[in-house]
Amino acid sequence: MVTVATWNINSVRLRMPIVQRFLTEQSPDVLCLQEIKCQEDQFPYEAFHALGYEHFAVHGQKGYHGVATVSRVPIREFSRHDWQDNGEARHVGVELPDHQGMIVENVYVPAGGDEPDREINVKFGQKLDFLERMTRWADKVDRPTLIVGDFNIAPLESDVWNHKQLLKVVSHTPIEVESLQRFMDAHGWADIGRQHIPDPQRYYSWWSYRAKDWQANDRGRRLDHMWASPELAKQATGHRVHEDARGWTQPSDHVPLVTEFTL
Rank of each mutant, 00 (worst) to 15 (best):
A5W: 10
T6H: 14
L14W: 08
R15M: 08
R21E: 14
L23Y: 06
E25Y: 12
Q26W: 15
S27E: 15
K37L: 03
A47C: 03
F48S: 05
A50Y: 04
F56M: 00
Y64E: 09
V70I: 05
V73R: 15
I75N: 01
E77K: 14
E77C: 07
Q84S: 15
G87E: 11
R90W: 09
R90D: 10
H91Y: 08
V92M: 13
H99S: 10
M102Q: 02
I103W: 03
V104W: 08
E105M: 12
Y108Q: 10
G113F: 00
D117I: 06
N121Q: 07
D129F: 07
R136D: 14
R136P: 09
V141D: 00
P144K: 03
D150C: 03
K164Y: 12
H172A: 02
P174R: 11
I175H: 14
E178D: 05
E178N: 02
L180E: 09
W189M: 04
A190I: 08
D191V: 00
I192K: 03
R194S: 01
R194V: 01
Q195D: 01
Q195M: 06
Q201L: 08
S205T: 10
R210V: 07
Q215N: 12
D218Y: 04
G220R: 03
G220A: 02
R221A: 09
M226C: 01
S229E: 04
E231G: 06
K234M: 13
Q235V: 05
T237V: 08
H239L: 06
E243K: 13
H254E: 07
T259I: 04
L263M: 11
